[in-house]
C-alpha cells in the first residue's frame, strides 16, 4: 500500500514539475529576432600566474598560460556563456556532435554550450594518457570517466539526459578544466575572443538573458525581442581584487 501510494505521489510530483518548468516545446520560428552583444571585463584583468605543470613536462612544458581571463579587443571577454534562461518554446535543438579536444595538456574549448540530445566527441591530440571526467557541477556526480590513452584516440558519448552545468576534469593532469553548459533549448552562445555573442531565431517576447563566467559568476539582463530585429544586450564583469 505504502509503495503504491509513494509511486502515485512521485508520479503526481513529476507531472507537476514538468507542467511548471522545464518542458521545452519546439515550434516553427519564422522571422525570429536576434539577441546579440558584447561581454566586457571592466578594468584590468587580474594577474593569474601561469599553470605550473607537475607531470609530463617533457611534453606539456613547464608552464601553460592560465586561461581564466582571456581579454581581447576593447576589453572583450572570451569564454562567457550567454543564454536565454527558461525559454519555453522555440526552434529545434541542434543534433550535431560537439567536440572536446585534449590538446597540449589542456581542453579545447574551455567553455561551450550544448543542447540535450546532442552527443560529444572526446578526442586527444596528445601522446600521453588523459582522462576526461565530466561531473555535474552541483552534485559532483560523475557522468563518466573516459581514458584517452594515446594520440589520435577519440570516442563519442551521449550527453546527460537532463540539462546541467558540466565541469570536466582530467585527473591525470589536475590543472585541466573545461565547462559544458547543457540546455534543453538551443538559445545560447559562447563569447568569442572579442567578447561577442549572437543568439539567433528567437521568437518575439521578453527574456532573461544570463551571462556566466567560470570565476566571476553570472549576471542577468532583460531583453525584449521583436520579430526579425536584433536586440543588443551588453554585459560587463568587474573582477574581484
Amino acid at each position: 500500500m505504502r509503495k503504491v501510494l509513494s509511486t502515485a505521489l512521485s508520479a503526481a510530483l513529476l507531472s507537476v514539475l514538468s507542467a511548471v518548468g522545464s518542458a521545452y516545446e519546439v515550434i516553427t520560428v519564422t522571422n525570429g529576432g536576434t539577441v546579440q552583444g558584447v561581454v566586457k571585463l571592466v578594468g584590468q584583468a587580474p594577474t593569474v600566474p601561469p599553470i605550473k605543470t607537475t607531470k609530463n613536462q617533457d611534453y606539456c612544458g613547464n608552464s601553460i598560460d592560465n586561461p581564466l581571463y582571456v581579454v581581447g579587443k576593447d576589453g572583450g571577454l572570451k569564454n562567457v556563456e550567454v543564454f536565454l534562461k527558461g525559454i519555453e518554446k522555440g526552434k529545434a535543438n541542434p543534433t550535431a556532435t560537439i567536440t572536446l579536444l585534449n590538446t597540449h595538456c589542456m581542453f579545447d574549448p574551455r567553455v561551450q554550450g550544448s543542447s540535450t540530445g546532442q552527443q560529444i566527441k572526446i578526442a586527444s591530440d596528445d601522446p600521453i594518457l588523459h582522462n576526461t571526467h565530466p561531473q555535474n557541477n552541483d552534485t559532483n556526480a560523475t557522468i563518466y570517466n573516459i581514458a584517452l590513452p594515446f594520440k589520435g584516440f577519440s570516442v563519442t558519448k551521449p550527453l546527460p539526459a537532463t540539462p546541467e552545468l558540466i565541469r570536466v576534469k582530467c585527473d591525470a593532469h589536475e590543472w585541466m578544466r573545461a565547462w559544458i553548459w547543457e540546455f534543453d533549448h538551443p538559445y545560447y552562445a559562447t563569447t568569442d575572443a572579442d567578447g561577442h555573442f549572437e543568439i539567433k531565431d528567437v521568437p518575439p517576447g521578453t527574456y532573461t538573458v544570463v551571462a556566466w563566467h567560470e570565476v566571476m559568476g553570472q549576471k542577468d539582463a532583460s531583453a525584449t525581442v521583436a520579430a526579425g530585429k536584433p536586440v543588443t544586450v551588453d554585459f560587463s564583469f568587474t573582477p574581484k581584487k
Partner: peptide, 8 residues
C-alpha cells in the same frame, strides 16, 4: 580518477 578503458 580511474577512467573507463572500454573504448580503447
Amino acid at each position: 580518477p580511474m577512467p573507463s578503458f572500454t573504448d580503447s
